[in-house]
């Protein structure tokens, strides 16, 4: 059976497979380096003194250049733990509202036929098209009237309003593709419309929810504008605002600036590492398959 030709062919195909795998890894590894290198560069240089940062930006810190002075400045000048807590509360709460309320609205729009359905859908996604920052003054006046200035709730409400259009847009698109049979079966089983949404639909759209979550999270976490306008007090400051103000205060002190950047990056990475498993589990659960 093992004619020489066959073995040769098997070998070439194995070789091809190996070289294929190698090139897959080469591309992925190459791009991963591009993605991570700048972040690594900042962290590495945050452990050097000012001359080390400028003189040898690409070398690891060594005895001559190692310095924790930047971190000392950051820790003595800014309360980054509070800022981080604020960012976390705002982001998580807004995300929850965007996903839950967005999914409920998308479900209603995709599932039921009622008057003005199409119009309402357009209404809900129009908000994608105008940067919400333009409504700043009206939003601020509203928050003053509601007595919400310098509270995290003000930020949560604005971010929820800002995130809903994209969430509704993506979620209705996907919900339309859900099979109706499952829902109708549930109806025959006597489940209420609410339970159908909570127990049938939500689990089915989990992967999309995870995607929407990642999407919505980024502009919220990174926003500079609304924290500045609505909640710039020390007690409600977010990490992004804290870092930005810190950079303003220590423009020339790059050791401190790099340390502040590193401190701001690390928790996000940790959080993402934590979320990432959930996210991928969501995506790969394959609920949409079939």
């Amino acid at each position: 059976m093992n004619t020489p030709v066959r073995t040769a062919r098997a070998r070439t195909s194995r070789l091809r497979r190996i070289s294929g795998t190698a090139s897959v890894h080469a591309v992925l590894l190459g791009y991963t380096l591009i993605a991570v290198f700048p972040v690594f560069l900042v962290m590495m240089n945050s452990f050097k003194d000012r001359r080390g940062i400028f003189g040898e930006p690409l070398s690891l810190p060594h005895a001559g250049t190692f310095s924790l002075e930047g971190y000392a400045t950051v820790l003595s000048e800014g309360s980054f733990a509070t800022y981080f807590g604020n960012s976390l509360i705002v982001t998580v709460a807004s995300l929850f509202l965007i996903l839950f309320l967005g999914a409920a609205a998308a479900h209603a729009l995709a599932e039921y036929r009622f008057r003005f359905n199409a119009l309402l859908k357009i209404y809900m996604i129009v908000g994608i098209m105008v940067p919400i920052r333009l409504g700043t003054v009206a939003i601020l006046k509203l928050m003053v009237d509601l007595n919400l200035v310098n509270t995290l709730l003000a930020l949560i409400l604005v971010y929820t309003a800002q995130g809903l259009p994209v969430a509704v847009f993506i979620l209705t698109e996907f919900m339309r593709t859900l099979s109706r049979d499952i829902k109708d079966c549930a109806r025959i089983d006597g489940l209420s419309e609410y339970r159908i949404f909570l127990e049938v639909v939500l689990p089915l759209i989990r992967p999309v929810l995870a995607t929407v979550a990642v999407f919505s999270m980024i502009p919220i976490w990174n926003d500079l504008w609304f924290p500045l306008i609505l909640a710039s007090s020390d007690a409600t400051k977010t990490v992004t605002l804290g870092v930005q103000q810190f950079i303003g205060q220590f423009t020339v002190n790059w050791g401190a600036v790099l340390a502040a950047l590193s401190i701001a990056i690390l928790p996000v990475l940790g959080l993402y590492a934590l979320f990432s498993r959930q996210l991928i589990a969501g995506i790969t659960s394959g609920a949409v398959k079939g």
Binding site: V137, L140, K141, M143, I229
Partner: peptide, 8 residues
């Protein structure tokens, strides 16, 4: 300007 307009 935003804070002045908003009264904060």
């Amino acid at each position: 300007n935003a804070r002045l307009d908003g009264g904060t």
